[in-house]
Nucleic acid binder design. Structure first.
Lengths: 135, 135
DNA sequence: AAGTTATATAACGTTAAGGTTATACATCAG
DNA sequence: CTGATGTATAACCTTAACGTTATATAACTT
């Protein structure tokens, strides 16, 4: 059994990619097949499989079965653990900023996961979701 | 100016390492010099500098000045943004698990950032904090 | 069984990160 | 100015990740 720290490592690493965040956003609305999860992105199917493998290893998703399909489902516990870790810092950001709910409101007016602009990565690493992920 | 998505990329990536999480935990208690930040770890000073650079690029810390020292301070806004992003999934984990405050209580009884056990990394990557990070 | 669909895996190239030792640079004290 | 202290950067090695194309495997249909 791996430790909480290792789980946090895997969870935060998995969340550090816009494609994977967008995949989670889709799965938050319900189970989806690999093909469905692939649709919004201009990347190859194997690239999607790799992302899914990272999410699975981080226990953020699980695999269902539906004939030849392997739909994925979100598993939210790692997200709760990450949130709990961040909660320890709440006193700091609330001392410096507006309350979190106000920040939520502010962030709602900014596009979410429209695809990384690749600022820190070469252009060939550029990913672009075909649709904006709305929740 | 980089987008929110890129900020989240950088923040989550920075949090994906136990040493960096421990550094943030120390800084949450107040500004600290590079030497102080290095003390709990059995890794070289340049390795610490590299971790600090990642935290800076993610805007999680800033550099102060004190003679020849370059103390670091925590900057909590990226943590608030990460928390806000996770907040969108709260309904899911609360539907499946005990409330977050109960999870916090549970997590408090598990050692935090005692150092990665290197489970996913070769033994030579093993890091070990000399002291448990208590908050 | 052959063909189709859905997805996983292999092999490849490139890059950032997580370490190291060595050296350079910044700042201070005498 | 020289020497000491504090820290940053360079060069190196290894590995995981982020992509690609090609191929293999799983499951279904005819």
């Amino acid at each position: 059994m791996t430790s909480l720290s290792e789980h946090l490592d895997a969870t935060f690493a998995a969340l550090a990619d816009p494609t994977r965040r967008a995949i989670l956003a889709r799965l938050a609305r319900g189970e989806a097949s690999v093909a469905e999860l692939s649709a919004p992105f201009d990347i190859s199917q194997p690239a999607i499989s790799k992302h899914l493998k990272i999410l699975e290893r981080a226990r953020l998703i699980s695999v269902a079965q539906d004939g030849q399909r392997r739909p994925r489902r979100i598993e939210a516990r790692p997200l709760a653990e990450a949130s709990a870790w961040l909660e320890e810092y709440r006193a700091i950001w609330e001392a410096n900023f507006e309350r979190l709910d106000a920040l939520l409101e502010e962030l709602k007016h900014e596009p979410r996961e429209v695809g990384g602009n690749g600022g820190k990565k070469p252009a060939k690493r550029k990913k672009r979701a075909r649709q904006e992920t709305e929740r």
